[in-house]
Design a binder for these strands. Sequence first.
DNA 1: GACACACTTGAATATTGACTCATGTTTCAA
DNA 2: TTGAAACATGAGTCAATATTCAAGTGTGTC
Lengths: 217, 217
Amino acid sequence: MSQYSSVSDGADRTAGKSGPKTERGRRTLRKLLDAAGEEFGLRGYHEAAISHITQRAGVGLGTFYVYFKSKEEVFRALVADMGARTRHALSESVKDAPNRIEAERLGIRAYLEFVRTHKSLYRIVMEAQFVAPESYREYYRAFSEGYRQQLTQAAARGEISKGDDEARVWALMGASTFLGLRYGVWQDNADIAAVSEAAADLMINGLAPRVKKGDAL
Amino acid sequence: MSQYSSVSDGADRTAGKSGPKTERGRRTLRKLLDAAGEEFGLRGYHEAAISHITQRAGVGLGTFYVYFKSKEEVFRALVADMGARTRHALSESVKDAPNRIEAERLGIRAYLEFVRTHKSLYRIVMEAQFVAPESYREYYRAFSEGYRQQLTQAAARGEISKGDDEARVWALMGASTFLGLRYGVWQDNADIAAVSEAAADLMINGLAPRVKKGDAL
DNA sequence: GACACACTTGAATATTGACTCATGTTTCAA
DNA sequence: TTGAAACATGAGTCAATATTCAAGTGTGTC
C-alpha cells in the first residue's frame, strides 16, 4: 500500500536524468518516498535521519543519493506530492455540490477527514514553512488560486456575497488549517461531523446574531 | 529599546536558582533574550547559533550557559514571552469595544498590525510547533481559553449567535493567523485596513448572500 | 556471452555547533 | 579591606549525521 503512489516527476531528481529507467528503479524510488514520508512525519525534518529512511525502505544508505540530491530535495518532493493529493481529494469531495455554500460545507468536512487520515503529511507541509519556504508558498499559492476562482465565480452567480476574495480565501484556509490541527491531529477522536458543521456555519453565516422572520430590518 | 523588556521569571532559568541577583545580571539576561529573539527570528531555530546570539548580545559564549540550560530553553522562554505580549496587545486594543462584533473588527486589525511589527516573534511562535510543541500548545491553549470566554459571554448577551465556541475560536484564530502570514509577513505593504475590514466582514456576516430589506424570509 | 548501462552498497570523510569547564573578574555586605 | 557569591569567558570536547566514493551486482540487448 504505497502512500505516495503518485510519484511526481519533478525535474530535479537525480538517478540519471529524469527518473528511473527500469521497473526495479521505480520500485526503489517509491519505497524511498514512502519511507521518507513516514520518517519525516514521525520525527520531523531535523530529527529524521537519512539512514533511518533507507532502513525503513530496506535499501542501502548510498542508494538514497542515487535518487535524491539531498535531504531537502526529498522533503520538497514530498510537499509537492502532498499538495497535489490534497487538492485532488478536496476537489473530488466537492465536485457534486449544488452550490458554493454547500461546497464549503463539504470542503471543511472533507479537509478535516483528510487531515485525520494523513497526519504525517499535514506535519510535513506545516514544517515546510521553515525547511523549504518556497515549497510552502507554492503549496498555498496553488491552493488559494483555485479556491479564489471558485469564490469569485460563485459571487458572480449570486451564490455568495461579494467581497475581497483573496483575503477571504486566506481566512478560510487558515480556519480549516487550525481546525485540522486542533481536531484532526491533536484531538483525533473529536466528532468531526459536529465540528465541521459548526465551522461551516461560522463561515457561511458569521458571528452576527441571526435575522429571524419578523425582525425589523 | 529592549524587545523583550518583560523578562518572564520562568522557574527553569539557570544562573543560581531563580534569575539574576544583581543589576548587571539582569542586564545581561535581557541582552541575551533580545539577541536570541533577533537570531531565531532571522535565521530560524536550527540555523541559529548560540555563538551568534552571544556575539549579538556582546557577551562571551560561556555566558549564555550561565543563564540558560540549553538552546531549547531560551527558545521556550521566548515563546512564552511572546504569548504574554500578544495577548496583552490584543486585549488592550479591544478593551474599549462597545460589543463583541466591534471587538472582532478591532481585534483582527490589531493582530495584523502586531504581526507586521513583530515579524520575528511571529516566526518563533510558528516554529515552536516543531521545536517546542508543548510551548506551542500552551500558547494557543491560553489564547483560546480567553477568547472562548469572550464569545460565550457575548452569545449569552445576544451580541452574537450561539454556536460551538471552541470550534469557532479555532477557526477565528486560524483565519487571523493566516491573514497575518499572508499580509503581515509576506506582503508587508498590503493595505491592512482594507484586508482586516474584508476579513472582519467574513467573520461577522459569513459568505452567505446578504438578506436585504424586503427579501422574502 | 559479452558489452553497457542501470542500479546498489556501506565504510570513510568532513563539517558543524551545542555544551563543558577551569580560570578569571566584579560586586557587595560586613 | 576582605571574603564569598555572582558573574564572565572562550578554547576544547564530543557526538551526530549528511554526503561521497570506489567497488561492486543485476538486467537487457545484440
